[in-house]
Amino acid sequence: MPAEHHDDRHEHWAQQEQAAASASRDLADVPAVEVITTTAVHLMSAAAVKLGLADDPAMQTDLDEARKLINALAGLITAGAPEISDAHARPLRDGLRSLQLAFREASTIPDAVGKGPGEKWTGPVT
């Protein structure tokens, strides 16, 4: 391997390591409630896109991917809700329920009640 290629790779790793250290310092200052809610919002947004609720439904809809994201979101909200205030948890639960209902509506073969995405943690959504 040429020396200059090795140096470029070393510099790249050094920059990545520095960025990771900076992110860790930044996260140390962020309250847990903010990390939980921000993560939930990212999962909600991704699930909405995969449900075809964004700009290009024909190209972006993927119900298998949406199911995975909704399951992860339901687990996070169920586990995280006791750790954050009801004022933070309530809108997250409402958003999750809306996504679960949108999934049921988008499915050509609906899941049995209680077997839809996230219902293992939330209970049946009808």
Score class of each variant (00 low, 15 high):
37 T>M: 01
9 R>F: 13
74 A>C: 02
106 A>Q: 15
8 D>G: 09
67 R>L: 07
85 S>T: 15
107 S>E: 14
18 Q>P: 00
126 T>M: 05
84 I>D: 06
58 A>V: 09
14 A>G: 01
39 T>V: 08
29 D>R: 09
37 T>W: 00
31 P>F: 00
79 A>Q: 05
11 E>I: 14
47 A>I: 08
54 A>R: 13
43 L>G: 06
54 A>H: 14
118 G>P: 01
120 K>Q: 15
104 R>Q: 00
111 D>Q: 10
26 D>N: 13
63 L>V: 10
20 A>G: 01
4 E>A: 14
4 E>W: 11
10 H>T: 10
82 P>I: 05
71 N>G: 03
95 G>C: 14
21 A>Q: 08
58 A>W: 05
4 E>G: 03
86 D>I: 04
2 P>N: 12
88 H>Y: 11
112 A>T: 14
30 V>P: 08
77 I>M: 04
99 L>I: 15
45 S>M: 09
111 D>H: 13
126 T>W: 05
45 S>E: 07
99 L>F: 15
77 I>E: 02
79 A>S: 08
113 V>L: 15
85 S>I: 07
98 S>E: 15
4 E>L: 12
114 G>P: 05
13 W>R: 15
106 A>S: 15
52 G>S: 11
20 A>S: 04
114 G>V: 12
34 E>P: 02
11 E>R: 13
2 P>T: 10
37 T>D: 02
19 A>T: 11
90 R>W: 11
61 T>W: 03
72 A>Y: 00
92 L>S: 05
47 A>Y: 07
